[in-house]
Each structure stands twice: as structure tokens, then as C-alpha cells.
Amino acid sequence: MDHAWKEQRKGPDRWHETYPMAKGNNQSPVAILTKDVYKDPALLPWFTGYDPGAAKTIMNTGKTCRVTFDDTFDRSVLRGGPLQGTYRLRQLLIHWGSTDDKGSEHVIDATRHAGEIHLVHWYPKYSNYADSLRKTDGVAIMAILLKVGKDPKPEMKRILEEMEAIKTKGKEVPFQNFDPSILFPQNRSYFTYQGSFTTPPCDECVTWIILKEPITVSVDQMEKLRSLSSNAAGDPYCALVDNWRPLQPLNNRMVRSPCQ
């Protein structure tokens, strides 16, 4: 069992014993109250240019389902919104619950959704991904909330049909020709704030862009995610669920959204 996972077994409230940053002042996720959000006229729309050919593999890490993208050059990028430059897409991660009433990390107006997709991008003005983690503007994460409903978005299907192939921890299969922008809701409005990764070491390098409108998934689709095991193939099945971090204090941070 690798060291970091052993630490995580202690649970999020003890991560800081190994990763002191987890007790920092700018941690994520946070609860967002619409009435307290600052409508900022300076905030622009965001744009993505994703190359479907950049998608490489999909993996069960034992903690999440992860899609990896080729980030060796500006192949799939995010720009605009609160960002100063162009950020490269590196990975897609999913958080979900054991039941439909929990699973998302960010909570908006006291609503916690069934899941949350994170598209992780980094700022290539820094020499590499590891270097970007040490800078407050090094990473931009686009968050898409998942809510359970009657008309599921067919777009999740592509990811979910791979669940059989990555049942157990450490399983990884090729995942080609995938454009994550199909996951975006119609409404492009967003909340943004400065925060951290929601997994150790919880580096405080993230500009969060949380899309206000959730996308709809079905009960069956959520069950597919919950069918993954957090254990390796030879070990007993252990449902990979509730891989979301509890809320962190907002402290003096401001959550902003564009005026339009």
C-alpha cells in the first residue's frame, strides 16, 4: 500500500498531519452563497479549445476515475474568464457519493449534488506541471456539477462505458478521441475564487471556475461510478464512493461571478 493512500485512510480531517498545507487559509472546497457573491464587471467569458486527439487513458486510481490528456504543448486549452493566460488541460477527475444526495465537493446555496467533475489545467508559463503547483496562479480547475434527474446527458456515456474495463484500483485503458467540452452545460456562467486542490497535498495554487448550471445524470449512471472498487484486482471488492472532501472555511476570500 503506497504511503499517501495510507495517510488518506486516516481521513481528510487528518491530512494536515502529513500535508500541513491542508490546514492553510485558502483551502477547497467551499460553500457558495449566491447572495454573497460579488458580481464583477471585469470578469470575462471563458473559452476552451480542446483537441479530442489529446485524450490518452482512463484509469481507476483507487481514489477516483481519471482521464489523462497530452499536455506536452498547447493542444487542449482554457482561457478567458478570471484567467490571465492560456492554461493546458492535463486531467479530468470525478468525485461522487454513496447516495444521490451527496458527492459534489462545492455546495451552492446549501445544495450538494450527486457528483462533480474537475477539469484540471496548468499554466505553461511555468516550466512544468510540478512547478505550476508552487504558484498561486499555476492551476485552473473547471468544475461541473452532476445532478440526478430524468433526462441524463448522453455525454457522460463515453466515460461510463469504460467502467467495466477499470473495475479495480490501478486498471488503466486507452481512452481516445474524447472532447471534454461536450460535458459543459448550456449556461456558461460561473463562480470563481482562489483555492486549493481537494486531495493531498492540497496545494493552494488553484483558480476555481465552477459552472453554475449542473448537468444531469441518471440513477444508473451514478451506479456505474459506484461500481468501481478502491481495491486492486486480487483484493476484496470495496466500493469506491464518497471521494469528496468536506467543506473548508472561506476565510476572507471573495467568490465572484460575471455580471451577465
Rank of each mutant, 00 (worst) to 15 (best):
residue 111 T to Y: 02
residue 243 N to R: 00
residue 26 N to R: 15
residue 253 R to E: 08
residue 164 E to D: 15
residue 249 P to M: 08
residue 4 A to E: 14
residue 82 P to S: 03
residue 67 V to T: 02
residue 98 S to A: 13
residue 74 D to Q: 14
residue 192 T to S: 12
residue 88 R to D: 04
residue 186 Q to A: 12
residue 120 V to H: 00
residue 231 N to L: 05
residue 29 P to S: 05
residue 244 W to N: 11
residue 25 N to C: 10
residue 118 H to F: 14
residue 56 K to Y: 01
residue 49 G to I: 12
residue 32 I to S: 02
residue 123 Y to E: 09
residue 3 H to N: 10
residue 36 D to L: 09
residue 228 L to T: 04
residue 234 G to R: 13
residue 2 D to Y: 02
residue 52 P to E: 03
residue 238 C to W: 06
residue 21 M to Y: 05
residue 137 D to E: 11
residue 180 P to Q: 02
residue 200 P to K: 01
residue 258 P to E: 08
residue 134 R to S: 13
residue 22 A to C: 15
residue 126 Y to D: 11
residue 227 S to G: 07
residue 88 R to L: 09
residue 162 E to V: 14
residue 133 L to P: 07
residue 145 L to K: 10
residue 48 T to F: 06
residue 134 R to I: 01
residue 259 C to I: 15
residue 110 A to N: 15
residue 187 N to V: 01
residue 18 T to S: 15
residue 208 W to M: 14
residue 47 F to L: 10
residue 143 A to T: 14
residue 132 S to P: 11
residue 132 S to N: 05
residue 148 V to K: 11
residue 203 D to A: 10
residue 28 S to H: 11
residue 75 R to W: 07
residue 216 T to S: 12
residue 80 G to T: 08
residue 211 L to N: 10
residue 52 P to G: 07
residue 140 A to H: 08
residue 256 R to Y: 14
residue 33 L to C: 07
residue 84 Q to C: 05
residue 182 I to W: 00
residue 172 E to R: 14
residue 164 E to H: 09
residue 173 V to Y: 03
residue 256 R to Q: 14
residue 134 R to P: 00
residue 151 D to W: 04
residue 209 I to N: 05
residue 210 I to V: 15
residue 102 K to P: 00
residue 53 G to W: 04
residue 16 H to N: 04
residue 181 S to K: 04
residue 49 G to D: 15
residue 211 L to G: 02
residue 236 P to I: 06
residue 64 T to C: 10
residue 234 G to I: 02
residue 106 H to V: 13
residue 20 P to V: 08
residue 207 T to L: 02
residue 7 E to R: 09
residue 49 G to S: 15
residue 59 M to F: 00
residue 44 L to P: 00
residue 257 S to N: 05
residue 31 A to G: 01
residue 112 R to C: 09
residue 214 P to H: 07
residue 169 K to N: 09
residue 12 P to T: 05
residue 146 L to S: 07
residue 88 R to K: 12
residue 37 V to D: 01
residue 74 D to A: 15
residue 166 I to F: 05
residue 13 D to N: 14
residue 11 G to I: 04
residue 95 H to R: 15
residue 71 D to Q: 12
residue 228 L to G: 02
residue 242 D to N: 15
residue 231 N to M: 10
residue 63 K to L: 11
residue 59 M to I: 05
